[in-house]
Simulated scan of single mutants.
Amino acid sequence: MIHFTLYSRSYCHLCDDMLAALKAQLSGRVADIRVVDVDADPALIALYDELVPVLMARGRDTSDQELCHYFLDAQRVEQFLQDEASSVRSG
């Protein structure tokens, strides 16, 4: 299964927009989306404060990787999904 983590914060329209766009792009696909409030953890604020929203992804054989921040990069997300599908077919 593919896991997405969206580092976000309350009252962030860019965060809401990215989550909505990601859900639309994933329509019909199996994936887990976890939304994490960066303001709940000082370490996350230090990492992502000015970059929020930040979308991370982890596939079957990958560690977390940043796909985009501020706005959804639909092409990068699609490439990640295709790469994961290829690794499942070949593995």
Rank of each mutant, 00 (worst) to 15 (best):
I2R: 10
H3A: 02
T5D: 07
T5W: 02
L6R: 05
Y7C: 00
S8M: 00
S10H: 12
S10A: 14
Y11W: 10
Y11Q: 14
C12I: 03
H13D: 08
L14K: 12
C15L: 00
C15G: 14
D17F: 00
D17W: 01
D17Q: 10
D17A: 13
M18W: 07
M18Q: 14
L19K: 11
L19G: 04
L19F: 06
A21G: 11
L22E: 12
L22S: 14
K23W: 02
K23H: 13
A24E: 15
Q25M: 13
L26R: 13
S27H: 11
S27D: 15
S27T: 14
G28K: 11
R29Y: 13
D32N: 07
I33H: 05
I33N: 10
R34C: 11
R34V: 08
V35W: 06
V38W: 05
V38L: 15
D39E: 15
A40M: 07
A40W: 01
A43H: 01
I45N: 02
A46D: 14
A46R: 12
A46N: 08
L47C: 04
L51E: 13
P53T: 11
P53F: 05
A57L: 08
A57V: 04
A57E: 14
R58K: 15
G59M: 11
R60F: 06
R60T: 14
Q65G: 05
E66S: 01
L67P: 06
C68R: 03
H69L: 00
Y70R: 15
F71D: 06
F71H: 07
L72T: 05
A74I: 11
Q75E: 12
Q75V: 10
R76L: 01
R76Y: 08
E78R: 08
Q79A: 06
F80K: 08
L81I: 13
L81N: 10
D83T: 01
E84P: 01
E84F: 06
R89F: 00
G91T: 11
